[in-house]
Design a protein around this nucleic acid. Structure first.
Length: 300
DNA sequence: TCCCAGGAGCGCT
DNA sequence: AGCGCTCATGGG
């Protein structure tokens, strides 16, 4: 009667300057996010691995992220994949000391970094999801972008129910690759974005695009160039993906509207900064442009 | 109604 | 290589 199930548990050490609370705040901002759920300081996330849906719960105790698997006993390989996923999700491998030193000498970043100290770039490890999300978000307001993503995930993503809540995984490459532009237009995607996303799913399935293929490029510039050679991926999207999915600290979506608004606010401007001003400011952020951007986004 | 939104591709110089 | 036009639709 009411026997406690033995929970499989995993522990991932976190860096000294890691703030789970700040990362949680970031995760809780969107109101229409269906690819994870935050309940009482725990993150619930569903992944598909080896054709199996795996739900896990992320908590934190000083020094360690604790992962529990409430429904399944994960295999060794699955545990390893979840560990990698979480490490990328919260950018745990990055040593931020140089960034913090740089930020403390930067009049714009100093106050922001103090306010959100310990925040790490909360990424999108799932490569196809990261690209799709960037494309969805191109040139439309974020609220509508979340609506579009929600519709896509609801309609085409696999799901599983746990304790009364439904958890989704991002739609598979196979499914998206087989969709027509009309299918996505029904969800109010523009024809162009539908083409981009379907085309990218097909490219990945054909082996012509993958995280590994990007990583194989030697320099950051080559990675950027490789990504922008793909239809639908312009400079902003390439930087966004390099920042959120490949943990590249020098990725810099310099044309990003959110970045412009954050700087306008921090600098107390009555207009958005010009491209020349952006480049001038960013000279101080060399090597850590992605972190500067992420912290500036947070300041909004 | 108007302007803007976490842009990108394309054609024309 | 750089500029301008077009796409597309919800939010405020």
């Amino acid at each position: 009667m009411n026997e406690k199930v033995q929970l499989s548990q995993l522990s991932i050490p976190t860096p000294q300057d890691f703030s789970f609370a700040e990362c949680l705040k970031h995760l809780m901002k969107p109101e229409q996010e269906w690819l994870y759920r935050v309940i009482d300081n725990s993150i619930y996330k569903l992944l598909k691995m080896d054709d199996e849906l795996i739900l896990f719960i992320i908590e934190w105790q000083p020094g360690n992220i604790i992962v529990k698997f409430p429904l399944t006993q994960p295999s060794t390989i699955q545990v390893k994949k979840v560990t990698t996923f979480i490490s990328e999700w919260f950018d745990l491998e990055k040593d931020l000391r140089d960034f913090y030193e740089l930020a403390n000498n930067d009049p714009i970043l100093r106050p922001i970094v103090q306010s959100y100290y310990g925040l790490r770039i909360v990424g999108i490890p799932h490569f196809f999801e990261a690209i799709s999300w960037a494309i969805i978000g191109q040139q439309i307001n974020l609220t509508f972008a979340y609506t579009l993503k929600k519709r896509l995930v609801e309609k085409y993503g696999e799901s599983l129910e746990y304790e009364g809540n439904k958890y989704y995984v991002f739609p598979s490459l196979e499914i998206v690759a087989s969709l027509t532009v009309e299918d996505l237009k029904l969800l109010q995607f523009s024809a162009r974005k539908a083409e981009y996303i379907i085309g990218i799913a097909q490219l990945i399935l054909q082996g012509k695009l993958s995280k590994d293929l990007v990583l194989k490029q030697k320099t950051f510039e080559q990675k950027h160039l490789f990504l922008t050679s793909i239809r639908g991926i312009g400079p902003w999207t390439a930087d966004y993906v390099l920042m959120k999915s490949l943990q590249e600290p020098t990725a810099f979506p310099i044309s990003d509207v959110g970045l412009h608004n954050a700087l306008k606010k921090q600098l107390n401007l009555d207009r958005k900064p010009t491209m020349a001003e952006l480049k001038e400011l960013a000279m101080n952020w060399e090597g850590w442009q992605a972190y500067a951007t992420f912290y500036l986004w947070r300041s909004l």
